[in-house]
Design a binder for these strands. Sequence first.
DNA 1: GTTTTAGTACTCGGATAGGCCGTGTCCGAGTGCATCTGG
DNA 2: CCAGATGCACTCGGACACGGCCTATCCGAGTACTAAAAC
Lengths: 168, 168
Amino acid sequence: MPKLFWMSSIQNMRMSEGVEWAVHCCLNLAWTGPDRALTATRLAAYYDLPAAYLNKQLQALARAGIVTSTPGPRGGFRLARPAASITLADLVTAIEGPEPAFRCAEIRRRGPGATAVDDTRCAVDQAMGRAELAWRRELAGQALSDLMATVDRTAPDAPERARRWFAT
Amino acid sequence: MPKLFWMSSIQNMRMSEGVEWAVHCCLNLAWTGPDRALTATRLAAYYDLPAAYLNKQLQALARAGIVTSTPGPRGGFRLARPAASITLADLVTAIEGPEPAFRCAEIRRRGPGATAVDDTRCAVDQAMGRAELAWRRELAGQALSDLMATVDRTAPDAPERARRWFAT
DNA sequence: GTTTTAGTACTCGGATAGGCCGTGTCCGAGTGCATCTGG
DNA sequence: CCAGATGCACTCGGACACGGCCTATCCGAGTACTAAAAC
């Protein structure tokens, strides 16, 4: 029997799904406004997510200075600054970390083929770095306010519905 | 003792190091030329890498049609087409797979905040898709021949040294 | 009635387990070469 | 000497373990509100 269905190991380089959670949560925080704080539990309930784990992601945002956290009753999270000055690059960096996806292991300096120890940069690393720079640049060009505008255009009732649900 | 050193979980979204291996190996294949095949064992020895695992990566390249493999004595791998028509995007896709790094889980359709089931695309997914498109576009703009030119400029003796080592 | 004070419920915060995928290794199928043998 | 058959060594190819990181969860520290009690 020939092996027709055989999928290679194709699922590498996955971004943490916490990024999607973070962006959606920040949208809700922006719609709610700075006067009211939303708790991790409530945000998790809105999207049917594990509350404790979402809390972990929000903590990362707090450490990055994107949101502020207040403990105790009537506490929760709120945006630390206007939505126009929060970019997708900020959010991705806060969750995924500042490390680039491609890390040059400098294999060119290992084994018999080792090049002389000079200060030249690996050509592969350079090319990959350029690509990743383009990626981050594109992310930095999209602010949270831009996403809000897009949602206002594609699903105009979503913000009001969220506001209403979180108000209760 | 206060915990001064505390790093958050910052190591996400890592690209497989097999990509770096693949690119360097393809460079050597290009320098060697299509007349001679290089075995996985020999390529691994050149960079002091685990031979069997490198073989696995080269198999992925073979499946993608980037290299051709010939079994038996005097067998090995060689480039399937000229270096100018092999882009970094091809290599990354061959190793990492065609799936994008960001996969929208559509959490906006879950829980009480679920939007109506329409055909609109998630705004977050759109923005992330744009960024990843820019990344892939930059990768597609760099061919293997461009990398060879860069190496010729920064380390002019590397190609000849490789040719000589692999010739023995 | 006002002020103080204790209690309580609720929130974030970090430390702690489980599962999946990348990393690494192994052995079998197939091929080309070299050698040996017969003409 | 030459042609054919045989054995062998070498290669890729896919199947099998191990470990690290993401996912998920739990309990403790801290705070604001509530309510009771004393003045």
